[in-house]
Amino acid sequence: MKNLATKSGFNWLKYASPKTFYPLAGKLIPWCAISAATLIAYGLYIGLLVAPTDFQQGEGYRIIFVHVPAAWFSMFLYLLMALYAGMGLVFNAKLSYLMATAIAPTGAMFTLLALVTGSLWGKPMWGAWWVWDARLTSELILLFLYIGYISLQAAIDDKTRADKASAVLALVGAINVPIIFFSVKWWNTLHQGSSISLTKAPAMAAIMLQGMLIMAIGFWLYSIAVILMRVRCEILERDSKTAMFRQD
């Protein structure tokens, strides 16, 4: 490991220790936060003020400007969490575990938002607050997986064990996610009669797609800022000696 780091000329492993990562994260947070706020504001401007109406769904379609990015990040953050958990187990790196722990609440929050905004979209479009649509159902199960991870982490008092055990759970969950999503889709087609499914997404105008992507990047930067803030809290809570090295 050491060899690899020195050969590459840049000692990236230096930042894998919580002690050095703490000030680096502190420097990154304001930049991420400011660009997140700017991009989200711009995305809102496009989504609410500039983008034309959708001829099929009317103005109700505008919900997708928050719903779709939230749904994307609910899934992406779960995979990222599992990736950090796996890295933690392989390299026995404390910072990786801390990152996985810090990602979970934000991922769960986006999952919840995707569910609620999806239901707010579904009420006028489908005529019901909840429809057992394959995507909504998958999102609900994803929320359960997040809840499992967070509960296990909270239930174990020994932090080292909590990190490792929940990392194993995150990996098991990540292997299961594709299988679960596939099974839900299969279930949905078996019971065609009992559910309505939005089979084809409405054709999107370029400006709509642009607004959605900008919102997504804004959400991404927001996630980074919030996750780094949470990692810093975790570092201090677990090892307050590190605080001696802190530079605000």
């Binding site: 199960i141 359960f144 997986l145 809840i147 499992g148 509960s151 296990l152 239930a155 759970l169 098991v172 969950g173 299961n176 299988i179 679960i180 596939f182 099974s183 839900v184 299969w186 279930w187």
Partner: peptide, 15 residues
Amino acid sequence: LIAILVLPLYIPVLV
């Protein structure tokens, strides 16, 4: 706790 961890993973088997 076991129920919370395991039930979501049981879904494909149930389906």
